[in-house]
């Protein structure tokens, strides 16, 4: 891996890190290019092998698909996992299984780093306090923006350096592994996405019977020759039929009460009455 490639990957890792402001806050960063699916594409483009990058991204994403970030606590840092695991896997000539095997421990390491920055960055809140004491609004803003420097130092340097110096190491490590270990990694890597989907299911299932919907989607996809886009339309139709039938006594109209009733107290009354 060339130095410029490692530096560029480090830069994107920083931009896609949790808390970093530059890409519409967390929306474009952590929840956007920080997702392994997108990280795979970005690393693939930088390293000149888009297909390999995307395939690694898909595999790593599948494991981390059920992980959300409630209240600032990160269960596993998929940004670090992806932006180090995927480039190293590509550089070492390994496939998606290698990326997955690297991503899991890296995800745990990322949590430790995240906790570190979340502690250090309190200094900027204290700086903002001192500015507020002097009624200096601009100083408050500057303090807040300065906070991201800690994230930059942490993510940019760790990712760039690990990618640059780790690539030859990962390559020789992969070459020296016995066949049985590689086979085990391959089989384990194929089943591990079940982990991500199990957590996701736990999170979004709110009624027991709904597990059948998961199975329905599974059976449709594997038994018929359809694409994911056609499945989305099937899913949307079925869901709308159910929702319209269930909530029909309120009228099937789906507009929020609120957007209509702003200037009209009557609708609000009606809505409350029916509720």
């Amino acid at each position: 891996m060339e130095l410029w490639q490692a530096l560029l990957i480090g830069l994107f890792a920083y931009l896609g890190r949790n808390q970093v402001p530059w890409l519409f806050g967390t929306t474009g960063g952590w929840y956007g290019i920080g997702r392994p699916l997108v990280a795979g594409l970005i690393c693939g483009v930088i390293l000149g092998d888009v297909t390999a990058g995307v395939l690694c991204g898909v595999a790593v994403q599948a494991i981390f698909i059920g992980q959300i970030t409630p209240g600032g606590a990160v269960p596993s840092d998929m940004n670090l996992a992806a932006y180090i695991g995927i480039p190293l896997a590509i550089a070492a000539g390994g496939g998606a299984e290698t990326a997955v095997a690297l991503a899991i421990p890296l995800g745990a390491l990322g949590v430790a780093l995240h906790n570190f920055t979340m502690t250090v960055q309190a200094a900027f809140s204290h700086r903002a306090d001192r500015c507020a004491e002097k009624a200096d609004a601009r100083g408050v803003r500057i303090s807040n923006v300065m906070g991201t420097s800690v994230s930059f130092l942490e993510r940019f340097f760790i990712v760039s350096l690990t990618c640059y110096f780790g690539a030859p190491f990962a390559e020789s490590l992969l070459a020296s592994l016995p066949a049985i270990v590689l086979e085990f990694l391959a089989v384990g890597g194929k089943m591990l996405p079940a982990l991500g989907f199990a957590i996701l299911l736990k999170q979004i299932l709110d009624e027991k019977w709904m597990i059948l919907l998961f199975i329905l989607g599974w059976v449709f996809m594997s038994s018929f020759n359809i694409t994911i886009t056609s499945l989305v339309f099937i899913a949307a139709s079925l869901s709308l039929i159910y929702v319209m039938a269930k909530y029909s006594k309120y009228g099937a109209v789906q507009t929020e009460n609120g957007t209509v009733n702003e200037s009209n107290g009557f609708k609000d009354e009606e809505g409350n009455y029916e509720e």
Partner: peptide
Amino acid sequence: LIVIGGVAS
């Protein structure tokens, strides 16, 4: 759930 089922497969 339906889409996730399809993708998981």
